[in-house]
Nucleic acid binder design. Sequence first.
DNA 1: AAGTGGTCTAGACCACATT
DNA 2: ATGTGGTCTAGACCACTTC
Lengths: 249, 249
Amino acid sequence: MGTTQLETVPEPKYWHLRTVLSEALESEFAVGEILPNERDLAARFGVARATLRQALEQLELEGRLQRRRGVGTTVAPPRVGVSVGDEEPRWPGALDEAWQSVDSTLGTPPTAVARLLGTADGEQVYRIRRSRVSHGQPVAAELLCVPVGSLPDLAVPDSSLTAAAQARAVLRALGTRALDGQDRSVELGSAGADDSKELDRLPGAPVLVVTTRFFAEGRTAAVSVATYRADTCRLTFGDSGRVQIHHQN
Amino acid sequence: MGTTQLETVPEPKYWHLRTVLSEALESEFAVGEILPNERDLAARFGVARATLRQALEQLELEGRLQRRRGVGTTVAPPRVGVSVGDEEPRWPGALDEAWQSVDSTLGTPPTAVARLLGTADGEQVYRIRRSRVSHGQPVAAELLCVPVGSLPDLAVPDSSLTAAAQARAVLRALGTRALDGQDRSVELGSAGADDSKELDRLPGAPVLVVTTRFFAEGRTAAVSVATYRADTCRLTFGDSGRVQIHHQN
DNA sequence: AAGTGGTCTAGACCACATT
DNA sequence: ATGTGGTCTAGACCACTTC
């Protein structure tokens, strides 16, 4: 077994290590079990710790491992399927959703969001921050921006209201309007300082960014940017959330 | 400007560097422009090359940079929006799609796919590999598996047919059947040895894995696993493909 | 206090593309 | 031949959790 290494096209050590560890995870470890620490593992495989870490990072990116500073490295459970969007469009804040409002302010949107909304520079929007929890773990953080002009019937928020109450008021006002359609995109991103705290991860952690535009009366009435933990989540469309999907090689 | 560093909660160097570089990219560089090489940049910022590389990796993950061995680091264009799935389900291989069949074999599916198909161990499937090109660049590689039993009318392939012709025959046969529905999920993965070659990336490159199940006559008639380059692609649902979305901070 | 993963360093060599 | 990014090393120290 020690003599298998003469390959015609020698792959990088960390990649080979990843494969070896991957197989070991399937055959010799149970979900939740803790692995030996990095220094021991590196010594066992005869590589520098940095090289071992490169392999672990790959496996963590694939959702196979979970690493926590001060604690250790554990075998991750299969990713949870989180349903994001069905066939028919719906306003955010519909009752059956798993979102919880954590804050609501009045201010200017991030420039990327302003571009999607088509708002003028410095135009005010309601900024609602929500978080989504699944199986007791935070899985997503969202920033929902609604131009003040989209909700003419809503009184400018009273400072006597709690942030959560303000958020509810905005969502309720949105729900009364006719929704013409919506739009969605998914891309890879990395958690900023704020999101990473909400998601209980380090800054820079990989996230799946789901951007949704809501259309009403010929314009973009709201934009939601939701960041999902890429390590623990599998986004599902339709009703595939019920099914187990496992990692590929 | 050199004295701004006394922070109450000092963030990691590589993260701070990422921010600095990110701002420089927006203000001082044009798309396609090449950055100074890593050794120079590291010296300029007074950090080790490994630390600088950590910052560059972040920016590459976010689709802001593109690095090519032997060439250099360039400013990446905005991610291209690739449409994946509309409202109504449709068999793969419909005419308007941008997929190109590259191979077709008869064999057993990967275990993860077998689980989704509900096939018995060792049951044979048509395995079709396709690739998708957008703007002259490969953006996705797909493995489409169809159990032989799903297409009773199709003769077992003749070895005289080319792989592309076999693939067409399978897709055509699929298209004649009634499609009851479909199912989709998106998750983060890393490119395997085979996919990474098709996508023109190094093994381990981040990819968005889109898994689609096709239902017909009460069973899963086909499963598609498509891996999209996460660095260059933004997956769109509905008709958001027309719009520019830029990175967040 | 001890043990874990996270950050950082300063160097070396390799694979690849270009000249 | 040169220059680029990619891999790897051996060590140090830090931040965090747990005991």
